[in-house]
């Protein structure tokens, strides 16, 4: 059985600390209106930024699940 510190702990740390950086960044660009959701083009970028986060989150999670379940 793989230990927690090999499997999910790094994952939680990565998306916990990294998630804070990402959220603060997103908050800052929205707050300063560098990213304006009223612009169609910017709205697409906003969703792409969220998609990127979910993409990497899912990719790492899937590989951990596959590794844990393999022999």
């Amino acid at each position: 059985m793989l230990e927690f510190s090999r499997t999910w702990l790094p994952f939680i740390y990565l998306y916990g600390v990294g998630g804070i950086v990402f959220t603060v960044g997103l908050f800052l660009i929205l707050r300063t209106k560098a990213l304006r959701l009223s612009y169609l083009r910017h709205k697409k970028w906003f969703w792409l930024l969220l998609y990127g986060f979910v993409f990497w989150f899912s990719l790492h999670a899937i590989f951990i699940i596959l590794a844990v379940g393999s022999k």
Binding site: G18, V21, F22, G25, L26, I29, A34, L49, G52, W56
Partner: peptide, 13 residues
């Protein structure tokens, strides 16, 4: 695989 966190600040800052 850990560069995305800073992408919002790079793209729009």
């Amino acid at each position: 695989m850990n560069d995305w966190f800073f992408v919002p600040l790079f793209m729009f800052g």
